[in-house]
Structure formats: C-alpha cells, structure tokens
Design a protein around this nucleic acid. Structure first.
Lengths: 234, 234
DNA sequence: ATTAAAATATGACAAGTATCATACTTTAGT
DNA sequence: ACTAAAGTATGATACTTGTCATATTTTAAT
C-alpha cells in the first residue's frame, strides 16, 4: 500500500466528482485528494474502524462485506472503477462494513469533514448522491428478497447474472471478474461446496463453462430463466 | 379511503418536513400537501404503479414489501408516524415495492415533481434525507446479513427485537404492534408455521407470553442472546 | 520442473426447514 | 350469543441444504 498522485483532469473513471462543473471547485477538491494504491487481497478498512475519509475507486475491484462468526462473511457488493466507497460512513463514526481488494486497486480519498462540507455547499452533487443512495437501497432490498426467497440454485444463477451485469464479459463471454468459490458463496448466501456443486451442474447443462477459476457464460437466457423467480439487480 | 385536511402546524409527527425553518416555505409546502386517510389492510400503492407522490405517515402503521410468487411476500420494513413513504420512487418511474396499512392510517402526500424541486432548493433538507437514506441502507444491509446467515430461531428472535425497538411496548411489555403469523414470517424470512413453532418454543422457555395475537416480551436480554450472532437494527 | 500448500469437486450423511394435514382458537358479522 | 370463516398450533414427513471427508486440481514458491 503506497500513495501516489493522480490528477482528476486525466481521470477516465465516471465518479461522482465528475459532476462538479465549476473549475475553481475542481481545483479545491483536487488539493484535498490523496490516492492509495494497493495490491490484491488487502484490507482497505475494517468494521469498527473510525471513518476518516470517503473514497472513489480509480481502478480495480473491491469487495464490501460484513464479518460473521467463524469466518463466514456476507459480501454486500463488489465495487469497481468510479464507484464510491465508504459512503456509509457519512452518518456513522465507525465503518459498518469491511472492504478488501479483489484485484490490484487504486482509490482516491477525501477527508470526511471536507466531503460533508462540500456536499452541503453543492446541492446538485448532493442530490446526485441522494439518487445514488436510493438506487443502492433498491439493490439492497432486491438482495433481501432474493436471500429470503430463492433456493440455492436460483441464488447462484442470480449471482452470475449480477457479475455479468456489473463487470461484463470479454468477447468470448468470459466474466471480467475472477472470484474464489468462497467469495461467490459469501455473496450468494450459501456455502462454497454448494457453489461448486451448482456450477458443475450448470456446466453439465452447458449453461456455463469452467476454465480454471474463470467462468464463461454460454446461455445467459437460461440462467435468467432459472433466476426468473427473483427480481434482478441493475 | 378519503381525504381530509391536516395542518402541519398542529402536527406532532417527527417528519422530515419539520426540518424546514423558513415560515414562507412551510406555507408553500402546506399548500401542496394532500392527506389520505385509510383503514387497516388497505393497499396504498403497488409495485409497478407510477410514482406521483412522496408521502409521510401522519399516523398508523404501514408495511412495505415485495410481492413474490404464490403469494409469499417479503416485508422490507414496518413504517410508522413520521416515517417517509414511497421515497424510493425518487429515482424510479414506478414503485419498486408495495405498501399496505397494518392499522388505520393517515398519510400526507406531496407531488413528486414538487418534492424534487423542493429538495434541490433546500440543501439542508436534502442533506438530512441523504443521511436518512444512508441509515436505511445500513438497516437493509444488516437485514441481508441476517437473512443470509441466521437460522430460523435467530431470525424470529431478531424480528421480535426489531419490533420492540421500532414500536416499543406498553408498561406491561406488550408490543405496540400486532401482526399475523404470516406477516411475521414474511419479515423474518421463513414460513408462518415455523413462526408459530418458534413463538411457542419461546413461550415455553418463558421468554415471551402469547396473548391472542399480542406478544408480551418477558426476557428481552435472552432474546438478544439468541439473536446475538447477528447484527442489530436500530 | 518439482513440490507443498491451497483451492476445488464430489459423494455420503446429518441437520434444519418447508410442506402438508388436521385440530384448535379467535375473529367478525349477523 | 351464535356461527362461519379466518387464523393459529402442532405433529408427521419429505426435501433441501450444510457439514464432513476425501480425492483431485490448481497455484505459487523453490
């Protein structure tokens, strides 16, 4: 983990700060920013750590999760370039979740106090963030529904659809994210063994192809049918 | 369902609109407001209905839920006096959830367009709403965790704790909300039969007392121990 | 390239939960 | 107060899922 300088002007990430129109404001924001570069499988923040900053992902993939007993976590979401991180710390003194890198990542940090003041003085950005929270809440409520009502097969299918929507695939339908069975199950709400079994099942039905830890999606529509009972994340 | 006139000035409900300081603004808001009075077990809005207004609960109790297949719903939350309702319609054209009254209720409606304009011009209220959304998101993520990791006994205990925190009890520890077994199970993420069984179990352990459809909480701390594995809603 | 460690796949089994059937209780309307 | 309908309690059973054990594959370090 080390720090380096990244300029907003050169940045292609579609983060909330891109909503700032005033060049003066951009300059001020730029000055308050620090950037953190970290390799894969590193913890960025942990439950009960004090919240000092609100961040945006410049590059990489990060999992946000709650720690359960005997090491069984529940993954809330996988975040990528442009996504806000630690935003739930806005109304809490300590983080209610943990975050770790899935891949090498770099993130831009803003001091929490500065960010709050900034929001209070930029109603347009604040309103954008409000809409984002509303969207996040929608996704979280859909997850609630799916966890409460789907069986394991449906939950694993839904997880693949979520990863497909969020990270996409390359030209060969290979998912642009590689996860362990444990991470998949921590998101789906089941065990790593069940994920193994269901993925093998999907493969034998030619819905997917397993290539080492990669997943190639052959029949997206069939997966959608399996998960069709649930509501889908977007 | 009928309409009647309720004045904000006389209102004791701790709703977001109480955050408005400017008397002129209060007058404008007051004029845009309509009030809806409806008896128990009535549908207020339904999934896929267009969102025309954002509301606040003046009195009563309302359940917000997603409709599953074969009538098995998932209840997202029980809302009460002062709570905002339909706020998720802010960023969607159609409601992503349904809402029905659990008790006789009255709600204050504001046209959606007006409400959005109002927010954009009142950064203080917008920021308050932002913090509220953040809090809602926290609760929803805790629900995700509990649904993913708790067993039925823990989920039912957690549901009782949630109702105790949200609605409180009278001087005899009798919960200030009365729900059917079906509603309890739709919130807990199990079946009505399991809720019956677990509640009987709790009663035989003297943790609670069942009096008709009412629930009297005898040993709050013991219930907390049972649900201690999970994180708690606040 | 080799080897040890980690991750994955898979079958057998146990535990937990949903479903079904039925008896009982409560509610609401006359 | 009576009655039908709705809701609840509870046991039996079947099904799903988690757990455990073990074989196999993959990864990473030498």
């Amino acid at each position: 983990m080390n720090r380096q300088r990244l300029l907003c002007a050169d940045c292609k990430a579609p983060c909330l700060m891109k909503e700032i129109n005033d060049p003066e404001a951009v300059k001020i924001v730029e000055e308050k920013k620090t950037t953190l570069v970290c390799s894969k499988n590193q913890k960025i923040f942990h439950e009960d750590m004090p919240v000092n900053s609100i961040s945006f992902i410049h590059s990489g993939i990060i999992k946000v999760y709650k720690t359960g007993i005997n090491g069984k976590n529940h993954i809330i979401r996988f975040s990528k370039t442009g996504d806000i991180l630690g935003h739930r710390g806005l109304n809490t003194k300590y983080y209610p979740v943990s975050a770790s890198t899935i891949e090498d990542s770099s993130i831009c940090l803003f001091p929490k106090d500065f960010f709050i003041t900034f929001l209070e003085n930029n109603s347009r950005v604040a309103f954008k963030l409000l809409l984002f929270f509303s969207k996040e809440l929608e996704n979280s409520e859909i997850m609630q529904f799916n966890l409460a009502q789907m069986n394991v097969r449906e939950k694993v299918a839904e997880t693949l659809l979520y990863l497909n929507t969020t990270f996409g695939t390359d030209k060969n339908n290979r998912l642009n994210i590689t996860l362990s069975r444990q991470d998949l199950s921590d998101y789906a709400g089941t065990t790593k063994e069940q994920v193994s079994k269901i993925l093998s099942e999907f493969q034998s039905e030619n819905l997917i192809l397993l290539d080492k830890k990669d997943i190639i999606i052959n029949e997206l529509n069939e997966l959608k049918k399996i998960a069709s009972f649930g509501v889908h994340l977007s």
